[in-house]
Write a protein that binds this DNA or RNA. Structure first.
Lengths: 349, 349
DNA sequence: GAAAGTGATGAAATGGTTTTCAGGGTTATG
DNA sequence: CATAACCCTGAAAACCATTTCATCACTTTC
């Protein structure tokens, strides 16, 4: 029914082998013969049967992506970066969302293995340890995106969460804030969230502020959870002067709650986020945050994975993408009387 | 190297055919034999070689998704819905972002055809016409998600953009607004954006407001484009009392600009968006918008595609998902003096 | 001018499943 | 007891590309 190499061979008056050679590496074939074959290919609009090729060669040019919560803007951009770089390098993407459930992750892993993927990018953070042992067992090249894993065998590409969290907390402390509350990620999130926690602790210690675990309210990276976390914070700790939300969406949710309570941001309370998603430039007040590029993260992940697949030498299998503290309008020095309006323009860069 | 059916057959002491039968439809096999086979499968941790199966059967349980701009929250949720329902029905997803470029779309189409995808979901809006002629030619089951196409052969799942745009413009008109400006989508967007335009015109006519094409500023669905569109609007039409942005992000961008100019929303200018993304509940002011569920859209698209693949009878191949006008804080009746604070709470549902 | 080397091509084996067809064994039917 | 009917299983063909090995026709080299 479909056009096969056999048809091409017949039309071109050559053997199957010759057609295959032309399609893969014409250098072995006489130029004239190659031309004949090319012509036949075009005439018949021949398309290779990928399954047959994979069956024979055992490589698929397919990369699996398993993620969770990919609708979050930061991760959506990460996926975009992955896609762009994968396409660039001739890979197609097979994509699965695990919702953070181990069973689904396992399930996708099986499907992907059956499809003979060349490599896999993992973006999940909950059961990564169990997952990794499977992947290692399967011997599939793997890159962990957006999370640092100490296992020396595993390649990671991520922002330096410890340093970044440190930077922004230090920024708050230097602005005079001592009573800081935190909206952290889900306790199940064993990677980014835990790392950021470490960075926070470090910054607090160096600023001689006592670490108080009660001041860490758990969120789940959604606007809504930021909103309700802020509520808890205000009720339990009416004296806080700053809130650090572990991502931008939660920061925005928190700001919304504060405003509803007629608490002014940043005059009464400073709020900072994490990720630097586009939105943060357009909220009122615009968000002070740590900026990292999801897109870059995606690019680098595929770059790394590609090296592993091709067995190229890798200088360092833990890669940190740059991050930057971006100060906008949602933070104030403590006791300083800058009004919002004075800084309202020109801060969208 | 890998475990094959042959190994299973040998261990179970049966033939290849029997193993295959057990794996696909045990009903033909004696229960005792089936058990033996199952045991061998588990013992060897046998995984089917999907390429071999596809080669033989010509069906892949693979669905292709070609989209553009999928990092937009609404579309990210659409993808999430597609993924969830596809998984539910036993399909895996192969995903490609076209950036709205025809060449990339074509390229992905070829790759997907070579992988023998069972069906395809298209979410691109620019060159859909050229794309469709290829898909039709390839005879691949296809569903168009988030855009209405009149071609009777093509299944579409979308919000009723005409009606929705009509609803929200009518809402503005009934609130007394006569000087309305619009931030439309890119002119290249031949689907959703054009449909919404039709709805707008209809509502204007029925409210006896003259249609003025100059009042439609082109955006590209980003925050930034909403911001700069608002700038143009304010400069060119200082007398507008309402702005309808064709998606929520542009509305948020516009609001940001207005605030920077000390133009109060909604007291001076009402702003409405479209899509009803989560963010709209948390901005200040919270966004009046048309709410549609990207997730639902995804579910329905796969549902429809599945029917086409299975050659089930389809009652109607144009499906509209529900939409709803959600009035929050960014709109005011003209000349009415409601202050923002009175409505600030309880509007987050 | 014979032996060795080179270059281009084809034949055939191979990868791992599914599926058709046929056959063997058992039970029912007359 | 012969035949039919049925159930279960196995052998082998088919799906389509890649790759090894062999062949054949020329050159080159001594």
């Amino acid at each position: 029914m479909d056009v096969t190499m056999k048809d091409v061979a017949k039309l071109a008056g050559v053997s199957l082998s010759t057609v295959s050679r032309v399609l893969n590496d014409s250098s072995l074939v006489r130029e004239e013969t190659a031309r004949k074959v090319q012509k036949a290919v075009e005439k018949l609009d021949y398309q290779i049967n990928d399954s047959a090729r994979i069956l024979r060669t055992n490589t698929s040019n397919l990369i699996g992506v398993i993620g969770a919560g990919m609708e979050r803007p930061f991760l959506a951009n990460l996926l975009k970066g992955i896609e762009a770089e994968a396409r660039e390098r001739g890979y197609a993407l097979i994509y699965g969302d695990s919702d953070g459930e181990f069973e689904k992750e396992q399930n996708y892993l099986n499907i992907m293995k059956q499809k003979k993927i060349d490599g896999i990018i993992l973006i999940t953070t909950n059961y990564y340890n169990d997952l990794l042992s499977i992947v290692k067992n399967y011997q599939i090249p793997v890159v962990f995106a957006s999370g640092y894993i100490s296992d020396p065998d595993i390649s990671c590409v991520t922002v330096d969460n410890v340093a970044a969290a440190y930077d922004i907390v230090e920024f708050l402390c230097q602005a005079g804030h001592k009573d800081i509350a935190f909206i952290k990620g889900p306790d199940l999130d064993l990677l980014a969230s835990q790392e950021r926690l470490r960075g926070v602790k470090l910054a607090l210690r160096l600023s001689n502020i006592k670490y108080n675990p009660n001041r860490f309210i758990e969120g789940d990276f959604t606007f809504e959870s930021g909103y309700s976390a802020a509520k808890k914070i205000i009720n339990k700790f009416p004296d806080v002067t700053a809130i650090f939300a572990f991502n931008d969406e939660m920061a925005v949710g928190a700001i919304r709650y504060l405003k509803e309570q007629n608490i002014k941001v940043p005059e009464d309370i400073s709020v900072v986020g994490f990720d630097g998603i586009e939105l943060g430039k357009y909220t009122d007040p615009a968000l002070t945050t740590i900026k990292q590029s999801g897109y870059q993260l995606g690019l680098k992940s595929i770059e790394m994975l590609n090296k592993i697949i091709n067995k190229e030498k890798i200088e360092d299998n833990k890669v940190f993408i740059p991050h930057k503290l971006v100060v906008r309008e949602s933070t104030n020095k403590l006791n300083e009387l800058t009004t919002k309006k004075e800084v309202v323009t020109n801060n969208r860069g």
